[in-house]
Computed example of a mutant assay.
Amino acid sequence: MQRFRPYRLNQTVRDKYAEVHLSAGDFVQPYFVVDGVGIRQELKSLAGVWHFSIDELLKELARLAKTGVDKILLFGVLDSERKDARGSQAYAPNNLVARAVAAIKRAYPQFTLITDVCLCGYTDHGHCGLTDGQNVLNAETLPLLADMAVTHARAGADIVAPSAMQDGQVAAIRAALSAADCAQTKILGYSAKYASNLYSPFREAAQSAPAFGDRRAYQMDYRNISQALPEVAADIEEGADIVMVKPAHTYLDIIQRVRTQFPQIPLAAYHTSGEYMLLKAAAQAGLCAEIPTALEILTAIKRAGADWLITYYAQTITEHL
Rank of each mutant, 00 (worst) to 15 (best):
Q2E: 14
R3P: 00
R8T: 11
L9R: 15
A18G: 09
E19Q: 14
L22G: 03
S23H: 10
S23K: 05
V28S: 00
D35E: 15
R40F: 07
L46I: 15
V49A: 08
F52H: 12
R63S: 13
L73R: 01
R86T: 15
R86G: 05
A90S: 15
R99F: 03
I114D: 00
V117M: 01
T123A: 02
H127M: 09
P143I: 11
L145V: 11
M148G: 04
A149V: 08
H152E: 02
R154A: 06
R154C: 05
I173Q: 09
A175P: 08
A183D: 12
Q184M: 06
A192I: 05
Y199F: 14
F212S: 13
A217P: 04
I225E: 10
P230R: 12
E231N: 14
I236M: 09
M244N: 00
H249G: 03
D253G: 06
I255F: 01
I265F: 04
P266R: 03
A268L: 06
A268D: 01
H271T: 03
Y276V: 02
L279M: 12
K280M: 11
K280G: 03
A281I: 08
P292Q: 15
K302C: 01
L309W: 00
L309F: 00
Y313N: 04
Q315R: 14
L321Q: 08
